[in-house]
Design a protein around this nucleic acid. Structure first.
Lengths: 130, 130
DNA sequence: CTAGATGCAAACGTTTTGCAAATCT
DNA sequence: AGATTTGCAAAACGTTTGCATCTAG
């Protein structure tokens, strides 16, 4: 049997599903530990990886800092604000990528896209700083 | 004055320019230390970051493992082989991305694309394994 | 009963940092 | 001379691992 239903695993899954802010492992761990001080960070990491492998959650690799985790498992892109570091979901159809064939014998199996820029909140702050 | 012309900085720049295999900091360091045993890894890191900031080389963030460095500074995408980990330049026009406007007030300033798959070499090895 | 999961602490790989000494300009 | 850069070692950071213990099925 693989995939036992431990309290820890349920907690990790529930916590990721409840946090819609693309948290990293540490934020998920902190949220869990608040109510369950006995849970260890290693277990959180192990379960995040396992749940991501199983497709129950998604691991989002970002170009700066720790990996984020996403309760959304459907295909969508992310926008990272270079000011505050927050990750945003790109609206459906915001970015469209097409492979135009010639990859010189390299088989493309996955495409990772990250839109980097400035979020509305940080744009506002920048303006008011002037 | 910013940007002194130290031997170490020249070495880092020359070494990156001479290695066309998308090396990581450690590989660049090893290549330098071979002939200049006194150079420290911290200096290599500091210069790689500085040269990348100045646009003389490019830092390529990949979704697995250490950052790579690229002598090419022109805009192009990369393909990462999940078998051997090597990075390949995507031929011009291999991938085409278009922003279709609606990013909900988020200003996109940069688009990072990584094509993940299997390189020709590793495809060949896989077949002969069967 | 036992394969699988946990907690802990220690190790890991990558990168940055504090500081005194050295070096460019 | 003076600001910048270096080397070194130590720390930071995010993540994984070894191992003895525990637990779900």
């Amino acid at each position: 049997m693989n995939n036992r239903n431990t309290i820890q695993r349920q907690l990790v899954l529930e916590t990721v599903r409840s946090m819609h802010s693309h948290p990293d492992a540490d934020q998920i761990y902190s949220a869990i530990v608040k109510d369950h001080p006995h849970v260890s960070k290693a277990t959180v990491y192990r379960n995040l990886n396992l749940l991501a492998e199983q497709g129950q959650i998604k691991k989002v690799n970002v170009s700066e800092g720790a990996d984020r985790f996403d309760f959304r498992t459907d295909k969508h892109h992310h926008m990272r604000c270079r000011e505050c570091g927050r990750l945003w979901d790109a609206p459906d159809g915001a970015a469209n990528i097409t492979l135009t064939g010639n990859t010189g014998g390299f088989s493309v199996e996955d495409i990772r896209i990250e839109l980097v820029g400035t979020c509305p909140d940080c744009k506002r702050n920048k303006n008011s700083e002037v």
